[in-house]
Amino acid sequence: MEKLVDRLASYGAYHRDMRNILTHFIGIPMIVAAVAILLSRPIVDLGDLSLSPAMVVAALAAIYYLALDLRFGLVMTALLALTVAIGDALAVAPMAVWLGWGLGLFMVGWAFQFAGHYYEGRKPAFLDDLAGLLLGPLFVVAEAAFMVGLRREVASAIETRIGPVRVRERGRQRG
């Protein structure tokens, strides 16, 4: 659990404002889906097996998440499989449809990310550590779990290191 807490605390230090976290609940899934869609072409046939770059990237990411934590890793693997299935479905669509969904979700997802970091008053974590790009989806899953009372021991260990999430009061100034 220590490695999981280290990674989530490192990423979470850039995400202590609830408004930022909420924008990540929208933006990160959009970006992950966009990457899966955009990497779903081309498909390489290896005999009875067809493989896309999206499948390879998702499998490698799933291995990383499973190595960090089995329970979160299983959830991440299921979500990655879903995004690959969405990408596969769009990969057979006309080029304009495939590209429109992929690029559209990617751009709108990043707009949500940067809006959240405006509220946070801090740059995105990946600007200091590219691993933040891989930790973002796990962070969203972990925060959702914490919000419904799951994995309290992980949430507590993270808060001990970086403090609780801030909920800004209405009308309060940024800063």
Rank of each mutant, 00 (worst) to 15 (best):
M1A: 13
L4C: 04
D6T: 11
R7E: 11
R7V: 12
L8Q: 07
A9G: 07
Y11Q: 02
Y14P: 05
L22N: 07
T23N: 14
F25M: 03
I26G: 04
P29H: 06
P29Q: 08
P29T: 04
I31F: 05
A33K: 02
L39G: 01
L46C: 14
L46Q: 10
D48R: 12
S52F: 02
S52E: 00
P53D: 00
P53N: 00
A54C: 05
L60S: 03
L60H: 01
Y64C: 00
Y65C: 00
L66N: 08
L68S: 00
D69I: 02
V75Q: 04
M76D: 03
M76L: 04
M76P: 13
T77P: 02
L79I: 01
L80G: 04
L80N: 04
L82H: 02
T83P: 04
D88W: 10
A89F: 09
A91V: 03
A91I: 03
A91N: 02
M95A: 09
A96H: 05
W98N: 01
L99E: 09
G102Y: 02
G104N: 08
V108Q: 05
V108Y: 06
W110A: 06
A115Y: 15
G116M: 07
Y119H: 12
Y119G: 07
G121A: 08
R122A: 10
K123L: 09
P124D: 02
L127W: 10
D128M: 14
L130G: 15
L130Y: 12
G132N: 09
L135K: 14
G136F: 12
G136C: 01
P137W: 12
A145D: 10
L150A: 13
L150G: 10
A155L: 12
S156V: 09
S156D: 15
S156H: 14
S156W: 06
A157C: 15
I162E: 10
R166G: 04
R166E: 12
R174A: 09
